[in-house]
Computed example of a mutant assay.
Amino acid sequence: MSIRSSSPQPDDTSIAAPVSALVHAALADRPLEEVAGLITLLEQSPQYARATVDALRAVGTDRSVEDVTRLVSLLTRPPRDADCADEAIRAAAESRPVEDVTRLMALLHQAPLEAHCGQEAARAAAARPVEELVELIGRLSEERDAHADRLTAEAQQQPHGVPAMPEEPEPEPESDAQAAAQVDLTPRILPRTPNHRPVQHSWLGVLAAAVLLLCGMLWFPLHRDGAPPQPYGLTLGASALCTLLAVLLTLRPTLPAFAVAAVVPSVLAAGQLYEGRFHSEPLSRALDLTLAPSWIAGVAAVCAALAALTGVLVGLAAQQPKAAAPPRPPAAARRIPD
């Protein structure tokens, strides 16, 4: 039996607290260029690894959302790695109010940043409580629709924003032919101008995301009850995957996202049906861990698959080219020569 020494041992917490306090105070009001330079210097030595993490998290929690986005842009410029600012992104997405997280994710997707930054924010936000996650999904949907409306308004106003040309004297016959050809060319080009919203049927993405989120909640293993790691991990992975797909459909309701979102709950529903008929022992243990009874979890998976499949069908239908009537020449092109 060994006897522990009674000599006082260093307390890591008491040592780390002044360092953390110093980092927070140093980064509170400094210009972002100096903050980026300080973090770069700290990264150069493994001795300051903990201080580097404290600095990134201090920026993510204490500075404004706009400052966080600008610092991420400074820290991820080539040749630096795209994950250099992950700690700041995670701190902001995990601890800030839902309104700030909504603004942060919108800025990370609009700014000229690596796609990794927006994905890291989505992964961190997905770990928040379910009530906050639903609120975040709703706010992001409203933000996306408002952005699409602005693009639509700009596209519709663009033809009217062309400055008027000064009047010219009566053109010669050769100029008449050129004007007629140019006017005839204009109706052929104008229909190609995008005057529709870039993301159509966004309500399908919100609906499918809501059903997938409900499916993920019902498949969550609330208690392990001594189950082996494999069934527990299978149920937990299914719940997490449904939740991530719900976030993906909220941010980007594209055709590939709908397709993946239709496959995953279909596999879950097929597994529940297979267990009901053939009584597989590992699958039975996994289904016994779900928050809801297995048949309710299976029904939720079927509903999620149908909602995502509807998005796939609507997306395919929207991609079909529509037959357009041949443009009629304008009156200016049908001038009768004197």
Results as ranks from 00 to 15, higher is better:
L309M: 06
D225K: 08
K322I: 09
G298F: 00
R96N: 04
P228V: 00
A121D: 01
A111W: 00
D225V: 06
T76M: 03
E142I: 08
D12I: 15
V263H: 08
A324L: 15
G298N: 02
I3Q: 06
P337N: 08
A181K: 01
C242T: 05
A333D: 03
G233M: 05
A21L: 08
P253S: 00
F278S: 05
C303P: 02
R57N: 03
E172H: 08
L107P: 01
L104R: 02
L291C: 07
L245M: 03
E154C: 00
L251V: 07
E174G: 01
S266G: 12
D225R: 12
S64H: 05
V183D: 11
A93I: 02
K322C: 03
G205F: 03
P112I: 10
A308G: 02
L27W: 11
G298D: 00
A177G: 07
D288H: 11
L222Q: 07
H196G: 03
P337V: 12
E142V: 13
D184S: 13
E33S: 13
S5E: 08
P198N: 10
E154K: 03
D81I: 00
L289H: 04
L136M: 02
E33P: 01
S7P: 01
I189A: 15
P129G: 09
L214D: 12
P198G: 10
R70A: 15
G138F: 01
G298S: 01
H223Y: 13
M165I: 12
L27I: 13
S239I: 05
S64L: 05
A324Y: 11
V130F: 01
A121Q: 01
P46L: 11
T186E: 10
C84K: 04
C303D: 01
V162L: 07
A115R: 13
P327H: 08
E99P: 01
G233N: 14
A333H: 04
T310H: 02
A26E: 08
R30A: 15
V53N: 10
V68S: 06
D176R: 15
A36P: 11
A323M: 04
